[in-house]
Amino acid sequence: DLSGKLIIKAQLGEDIRRIPIHNEDITYDELVLMMQRVFRGKLLSNDEVTIKYKDEDGDLITIFDSSDLSFAIQCSRILKLTLFVNG
């Protein structure tokens, strides 16, 4: 049953990962930690990372904090994230 699940599709460069999320109350910090685990070796804990999501118009919107993240989650059951490393 995928109805209650949130799917995160995260892209870093050419690498795209699909991550099912069971807890929608994820904070921004938890998201960043999850991305560091998912992209281990490509995304380091001291990297400056910018996370953006695609909205319904196809625009890339920056996620700065947990309220941005929860808004993005409300918009779509499949959250398409693009990561930019400013390392």
Score class of each variant (00 low, 15 high):
T82A: 08
I7D: 07
L31A: 01
D25C: 11
K42Y: 05
I63G: 02
Q11F: 02
I63L: 11
K5Y: 04
K52P: 01
D68I: 07
V85N: 10
V32E: 02
G41R: 05
F39S: 01
M35Q: 01
I61C: 14
T82Y: 12
D57T: 15
E24N: 10
F39C: 01
D65V: 00
F64A: 04
D47N: 05
Q36H: 10
K9Q: 15
A10I: 06
R37K: 09
G41T: 07
A72R: 10
L83G: 01
I73E: 00
L31R: 01
T62V: 02
F64V: 06
Y53L: 04
S45P: 09
G13K: 04
S76P: 03
R37G: 09
D1K: 11
S45N: 07
I21C: 06
I16N: 07
I19H: 01
I78V: 07
N86L: 04
G4E: 13
H22T: 11
Q36C: 08
G41P: 08
R18E: 15
I78E: 15
A72C: 07
R40Y: 11
L83S: 00
C75N: 15
K9F: 15
G58N: 09
F84Y: 06
R17M: 13
M34F: 06
E14I: 11
R18M: 11
Q36W: 05
F84S: 12
I7R: 03
F84V: 14
I26W: 02
L69T: 01
Y28K: 06
D25Y: 07
L69F: 04
R37A: 09
Q11R: 11
K54Y: 10
S3E: 12
D1T: 04
T27R: 04
L69H: 00
Q11M: 07
Y28A: 01
I16Y: 12
K52F: 04
Y53K: 05
K54M: 13
D29K: 10
M34G: 07
D55N: 15
N86W: 01
P20T: 14
D55F: 05
I21K: 02
Y28S: 00
F84E: 14
R17S: 04
D1I: 07
G87Q: 14
P20D: 15
I7L: 13
A72M: 03
M35G: 01
L33Q: 09
G87A: 11
V38A: 14
M34A: 14
I63T: 00
D25G: 07
G58R: 03
I61D: 02
F39I: 00
D29A: 07
D25M: 14
V85Q: 07
L33G: 08
L81M: 10
I73P: 00
H22I: 12
R77W: 03
G13P: 00
G87R: 10
K80L: 14
G4D: 13
S76D: 14
L83Y: 02
L81C: 04
S76G: 10
A72E: 00
E24A: 11
I19K: 01
I16F: 11
A10S: 00
S76Y: 03
T82I: 13
S70W: 07
N46T: 12
G58Q: 05
K9R: 15
I73Y: 02
D57S: 15
S70R: 10
L83W: 00
S70K: 12
E56P: 13
T27C: 05
I61Y: 06
L60S: 09
S70V: 05
A72F: 14
K80N: 15
T27L: 02
D29M: 08
F64T: 07
R18T: 15
S66W: 01
C75A: 12
L81V: 05
L81G: 01
E24F: 11
D29W: 03
Q36G: 07
D59E: 14
R77N: 09
I8Q: 00
I26K: 00
L12W: 04
E14H: 07
N46L: 05
F64G: 06
V32G: 05
I51L: 06
A72D: 01
K9T: 15
K54A: 15
S66Q: 10
F39L: 00
S66T: 12
S45E: 12
V49G: 02
L81W: 00
Q74A: 08
R17E: 14
A10F: 04
D15A: 14
L60V: 12
V32P: 01
L6E: 02
I73S: 02
L81N: 03
M35V: 12
Y53R: 12
D25I: 13
I16S: 13
F64M: 14
T62F: 00
G58W: 00
K52C: 13
N23W: 03
D57I: 15
S70M: 13
Q74N: 10
I7Y: 10
G13M: 04
D25T: 11
F71E: 10
H22F: 11
D65Q: 06
G4S: 12
D55E: 08
K52G: 04
I16P: 01
G87I: 14
V32C: 13
V32M: 11
L44E: 12
E56I: 09
K54T: 14
L33V: 14
L6M: 14
T27N: 10
K54Q: 15
R77L: 04
R77E: 14
I61T: 11
L33R: 10
I51W: 00
A10V: 07
Y53M: 06
K80E: 15
R77P: 11
R17W: 02
G13I: 01
L33N: 09
E14K: 13
D59W: 03
V85L: 10
R18D: 15
Y28T: 01
N46Y: 07
I61R: 15
L43K: 03
R17K: 15
L81S: 01
I7C: 13
N23D: 11
I7V: 07
I8C: 05
L83M: 04
K80H: 13
Q11E: 14
A10D: 00
D55L: 08
L44W: 06
L31I: 04
L60M: 12
P20S: 12
D57L: 14
K52M: 13
Q74F: 03
I21R: 02
L31Y: 01
I16A: 11
K52R: 13
S45C: 07
D25E: 07
F84I: 08
S67I: 08
I7Q: 04
K5N: 13
S67G: 09
L31F: 04
L33D: 05
T50R: 06
D29N: 07
I61L: 14
R40F: 13
R18W: 15
D59V: 14
S3Y: 09
K80T: 12
F84P: 02
S3V: 07
V32D: 02
I26E: 00
A10H: 01
V38C: 09
L44R: 09
D29R: 06
D15K: 06
K9M: 15
D59F: 14
D55W: 02
E30V: 03
L2C: 11
I61M: 11
N46W: 04
I19P: 00
M35S: 02
L79Q: 06
G13D: 06
I21F: 07
S3P: 05
R40T: 10
M35C: 07
T27K: 09
I26V: 10
L69R: 01
I63A: 01
K42N: 09
L33M: 09
Q11A: 04
L43T: 02
E14T: 07
D25P: 06
L79E: 10
Q74K: 11
I61G: 04
D68L: 02
R40N: 13
D65E: 03
I51G: 02
I8N: 00
D57F: 13
L69M: 01
G41H: 08
K42F: 03
D15F: 14
D55C: 13
I61H: 15
K5M: 08
Y28I: 03
S67K: 10
E56L: 12
R40A: 12
S45Y: 08
T27E: 04
D1W: 02
N23Q: 08
G4Y: 12
N86P: 07
D29Y: 05
D68T: 14
K42E: 11
D55R: 15
I73A: 04
K42S: 05
M34P: 01
R37M: 08
T27Q: 07
A72W: 11
G87N: 11
I16T: 14
R37Q: 13
K80Q: 15
K9P: 00
S66I: 03
E56M: 10
F71Y: 09
T27S: 09
K54W: 04
R37Y: 04
I51M: 11
N46P: 12
L31C: 03
S70F: 06
G41A: 08
V32Y: 07
V32L: 10
S76M: 05
L31K: 01
L43P: 02
D1R: 04
R37F: 05
T82R: 13
L44H: 09
G58T: 02
D25L: 08
K5E: 14
R18P: 15
F84T: 13
I8K: 02
R17N: 05
V32A: 06
Y53A: 05
N46K: 08
H22R: 09
L12V: 02
S67M: 07
T62E: 15
H22A: 11
D55A: 15
V49F: 08
F64N: 12
N23L: 04
D65M: 00
I51Q: 00
K42A: 06
G87C: 03
L60Y: 09
